[in-house]
Design a protein around this nucleic acid. Structure first.
Length: 780
DNA sequence: CAGTGAGCGAGCTTCCGCTTGACTT
């Protein structure tokens, strides 16, 4: 048995370190936190100065048991958890659980897993920083208080009884989405007319080529038109040329958040997919740790990278750089995300190759030379007019880092101006005009968030940590506060005024606008809950809340503040808000009045109901019962109009009784249908669900029933299994699902026993058709 | 693919951050 036990957080790290340290050390991993607050009564003894009650969670018992065994047999235990607040706390919990003295136990840290770094760390151990541990406890306890006090408020005040939750991170994440949505809803596009002209000139080879120049913007069509009019009969010449050098600098190597953003933009991955693949790459030893907020590269890594650049592209392309973190809250326990060996281009993980390549390129580019450009601006004079047109061109003089990598762009950063090449021009040169246009362009609202741009925003606000970005998004989706979906655009007209061959013509064109793919939309539930939380807990919902408490955690870490005092100062007013809200606030309904129903004279309101967003005519206090209608999936309490709401009450329609049971028409997920006696009959396309009568409906029911009888071979009433005749032979139906009958037994379908049928269904479930086979069919 | 939508009240849910497998469909 080794003399020393060294404990790290990650098992992948443990393996490598054990090789480096040799026989004197046994290296074990604790798999992150090993203790957490008990769930009963928050796990906090509020009256006793917020004394926390920690327990070892069930899934960590095995790990702790093993660590205890090894620790007992070792002479000395070394704590080598990550160098940040959480890591320090994990080490402290290890002391508590393993019976080590927190004042004398050896604590070491390293930022890279190389032989010299680890040997140096072992030579210079320190002891636990208990102030830092206390800062972590304050963080943990405060998050528990916020989450476990706010969530029950929602359970009490929301009529929807699914498991709602609120917390310092998730609730602000939903708020960001909600506010963007309202910004978009409130946005009114303003149009203006942008002038651009196309000229012809000779290129370097003496061939005729065209280039574009831009003019001014006009708010009104008539002003744009009068400008074009003023250009009739004009001649054009180069008034001025300016050439300026410019450069572009590579982006820093990846952190968790930038990797998630870039993988989203370039590969279309969700943040959880990115993290899943990155985890695989890390475990296989291909990349450094994937949950980090540091842009730092170790010295050995920089050597490896610059060496690779020189070999691949020559010394001119190599330019070692140090990147600094913008974000002060970065805790820098790890390096940036980079390949462990730059010479490795291909990896054996099929799914991970594209992500690996992205990381490889970004890492290479970060240590490469700037790209050098030459920007040319030419001013073009109009003989009949004082205005100048401006043409811009860009020439890449030296590609530098662009040789391997170009950072992707978010929608909001996109500018419409794209710079191409300009032909050689000289001052005074005459330019023949090919055409000039004034195109109507509309202002656009800020785009909805993608998963990755939400992560970016959260990081900017200092909310959440690399290990929680992906889980936070999963949580707000799972709770139904937010949905990820596409939105179809709407068609809009725009005007074009064109000057060509000294004549002006006008036309109206159409464009599709507002279409979005895979974006985050708030649900009515998300909007209503966010409003409620802001109304009653504006401090916690504030975008600056996390930053403010982080400052206090830092003060605790530096010994200037007692953690219990800090938590107490937050708790007292917060708890008062919670108690007041519990007692006084009404049920959350998110109510909006839409108008008055002309038939009954009663109020029409949209609100949140027991089963989700709904419209209601009248009130429960009225003599007559109120009428209710559920909103369709694409409708929202926030935006539904009166007419649209009233439409919802046209269905379902009761047509009358048939065979002593009511016949009802409605529109379902798959189109209009009739329901009768718990059976559904779809409506032929030519029949209008709003106009169909009982006389028209009954034949449909009878026909379908007849057809069904003809198709039925056998029914097992008790088990609700049917044997049916299909176009390809007999098959089984249980509930809504169909199951095949094996070919050799199809002939005796009518004689099948219940045991045989049940077995067939079990077999079919156990051996589902292969995915690839189904996919092929679907794509055909 | 129904209709439900008030309120009562068992017994349930919930946070953030650190780590991976062991599960099922």
């Amino acid at each position: 048995m080794a003399k020393n036990l060294l404990i790290v957080e990650s098992p992948a790290k443990a393996k490598t370190i054990e090789k480096i340290l040799g026989e004197d050390f046994e290296v074990k991993s604790c798999f992150g936190h090993i203790r957490d607050l008990e769930k009963d009564e928050m796990g906090i003894d509020v009256k006793n100065n917020f004394r926390p009650r920690y327990i070892v969670p069930e899934d960590k018992e095995k790990v702790v048991k093993e660590l205890r065994q090894v620790a007992r047999k070792s002479d000395e235990v070394w704590l080598a958890t990550d160098e940040d607040r959480e890591g320090e706390a994990i080490s402290w919990h290890l002391c508590e659980v393993l019976g080590l003295d927190p004042v004398s136990t050896k604590r070491i840290v390293f930022h890279e897993i190389t032989k010299p770094a680890i040997q140096k760390a072992v030579k210079t151990p320190r002891t636990l920083d208990l102030n830092l541990v206390n800062a972590q406890q304050a963080r943990r306890i405060l998050d528990r208080i916020v989450g476990f006090e706010l969530s029950p408020v929602l359970w009490r005040k929301m009529s929807m009884k699914n498991n709602l939750s609120a917390g310092r991170v998730q609730s602000v994440a939903v708020r960001i989405i909600a506010e963007r949505e309202r910004e978009i809803n409130a946005f009114t596009p303003v149009s203006s007319f942008k002038i651009d002209a196309v000229f012809t000139a000779l290129d370097l080879g003496g061939k005729s080529t065209t280039f574009k120049a831009e003019g001014g913007k006009y708010a009104e069509e008539k002003d744009a038109l009068s400008f074009l009019n003023s250009c009739l009969g004009a001649s054009y010449s180069v008034a001025d040329i300016q050439v300026k050098p410019a450069k572009r600098t590579p982006a820093a190597p990846f952190t968790t958040s930038t990797l998630q953003q870039e993988a989203g933009r370039k590969l279309g991955y969700s943040v959880s997919r990115t993290m899943l693949l990155a985890q695989k790459l890390y475990e296989a030893g291909h990349i450094t740790y994937m949950r980090t907020d540091s842009v730092n590269l170790s010295d050995t890594a920089v050597q490896d990278i610059t060496g690779q650049i020189s070999r691949d592209y020559g010394d001119r392309y190599s330019q070692p750089r140090r990147f600094r973190n913008k974000n002060e809250s970065a805790q820098e326990a790890h390096e940036a995300i980079r390949p462990t060996y730059m010479e490795r281009r291909q990896i054996d993980i099929a799914d991970g190759q594209r992500l690996y390549e992205l990381i490889w390129k970004r890492t290479m580019a970060s240590q490469m030379a700037d790209a050098e450009l030459e920007k040319t601006t030419a001013k073009i004079r109009i003989s009949t007019n004082k205005e100048l047109l401006s043409a811009q061109g860009e020439v890449l003089k030296f590609d530098g880092f662009l040789k391997v990598y170009m950072e992707g762009r978010d929608e909001e950063e996109e500018d419409e101006q794209q710079e191409g090449m300009l032909p050689p021009l000289s001052i005074g040169q005459d330019l023949p005009l090919k055409e000039m246009k004034a195109t109507e362009r509309y202002t656009r609202p800020a785009p909805r968030y993608t998963e990755a741009s939400l992560v970016k925003k959260l990081e900017e606000l200092g909310i959440g940590r690399p290990s929680t970005y992906a889980p936070t998004i999963s949580t707000i989706l799972k709770r139904g506060y937010v949905e990820k979906r596409d939105k179809e655009g709407v068609v809009r007209n725009y005007r074009i005024l064109k000057l060509s061959k000294d004549k002006i013509s006008t036309s109206t064109e159409t464009e599709n606008t507002g279409a979005e793919k895979s974006k985050l939309f708030p649900t009515d539930l998300g909007l209503v809950v966010t409003d409620f939380l802001i109304q009653h807990f504006d401090d916690v919902m504030d975008y600056g809340f996390t930053a403010r408490i982080e400052n206090e955690f830092d003060e605790i870490a530096s010994g200037k503040l007692e953690w219990n005092n800090m938590v107490g100062a937050f708790y007292r007013p917060f708890k008062e808000d919670v108690d007041n809200t519990m007692q006084t606030a009404e049920r959350i309904r998110g109510e909006r009045e839409l108008g008055i129903d002309p038939d009954s004279g009663k109020k029409v309101i949209a609100r949140m109901g027991r089963f989700g967003p709904m419209v209601q005519i009248g009130d429960v206090s009225d003599e007559e019962k109120p009428r209710f209608a559920k909103l369709k999936p694409d409708q929202s309490i926030e935006t539904i109009g009166f007419q649209e709401a009233m439409e919802l009450f046209r269905l379902p329609r009761q047509l009358g009784d048939f065979e002593d049971s009511p016949v009802t028409v409605n529109i379902g997920r798959f189109g209009p249908y009739i329901s009768h006696n718990k059976q559904f009959y779809s409506l032929p396309k030519e029949l209008d669900p709003y106009a169909i009568t009982l006389e028209e409906a009954t034949p449909i029911i009878q026909e379908k029933r007849l057809a069904k009888e003809e198709r039925t071979i056998k029914i097992f009433e008790k088990e609700k299994i049917q044997v049916l005749k299909g176009p390809y032979g007999p098959y089984l139906k249980r509930g809504l699902r169909n199951f095949p009958i094996p070919k050799d037994q199809q002939e005796k379908a009518a004689e099948l026993s219940i045991e045989e049928v049940k077995k067939m269904i079990e077999d079919a479930i156990a051996n589902p058709p292969k995915k690839s086979a189904r996919k092929k069919k679907a794509t055909k």
